[in-house]
Simulated assay, not measured.
Amino acid sequence: MKIKTIRPIFVTQFPAVFEQGVLYISEEFETAGHLCCCGCGGKVITSLNPARWNLRKEGGTVSLSPSIGNWNYACKSHYFITKNKVVEAGQFDAKKITAVQRRDRRDMEHYVAVVNARAGQTPEKAPVPTAKKTPEKSLMYEVVAFLKKLWKT
């Protein structure tokens, strides 16, 4: 790992250009972002929710869990951020990466089901996406609007 420590900065919106060694944290948007700690320059965005990553603040330090696996980058880096320290984790082969991605997908599906159930949207009551759905109500529209707001300079 090129980067051994990371400095947390709490922001409302991410800057247009990330600085190496800085973990930008938007509590409002439950998202954190940083440049890959291997030094490749890849932008890493972590969604802060029980199905993805948890952020723990301790004094002036932060920890993200579980580990960060940049499987979609050429570097395939894998590390932990613990109390502002970057700790390299072992490399994963393709089989392990696939298993982690499958588990992550399952975790997210479970999280969405729990959130929908709390909102009173049982599977039979939950909105069913259709081609006729207006863009204002589609999930993709909400994601794009969220990202535009987050990345706005």
Rank of each mutant, 00 (worst) to 15 (best):
M1V: 13
I6M: 02
P8L: 02
F10W: 08
T12D: 15
Q13M: 00
F14G: 11
P15F: 07
V17L: 07
Q20H: 07
V22E: 00
V22S: 01
L23V: 05
I25R: 00
I25Y: 02
S26T: 05
E27T: 01
E28C: 01
E30N: 09
G33V: 01
G33F: 00
G41C: 07
G41R: 02
G42I: 15
K43R: 09
V44A: 07
V44D: 05
I45A: 09
T46F: 05
N49F: 03
A51S: 11
E58G: 06
G60P: 11
S65L: 12
S67I: 06
I68R: 03
I68E: 05
G69M: 10
Y79G: 00
F80I: 06
I81M: 05
I81D: 03
T82D: 14
T82P: 03
K83R: 15
N84S: 13
K85W: 03
V87M: 10
A94M: 12
A94Q: 14
K95N: 09
I97F: 03
T98K: 14
T98N: 13
A99I: 04
V100D: 08
Q101I: 10
R102C: 05
R102N: 14
R103I: 08
D104W: 13
R105Y: 12
R106T: 11
D107G: 11
D107V: 08
E109Y: 08
V112D: 06
A113T: 06
V114C: 11
A117K: 14
A117G: 15
R118T: 04
G120P: 13
Q121V: 03
Q121A: 12
T122E: 13
T122W: 15
P123Y: 04
E124D: 10
K125G: 12
K125T: 04
K125V: 10
K125I: 11
P127W: 13
K133I: 05
P135R: 10
K137S: 07
S138E: 07
M140H: 02
V144A: 10
L147M: 13
K149V: 01
T153Y: 04
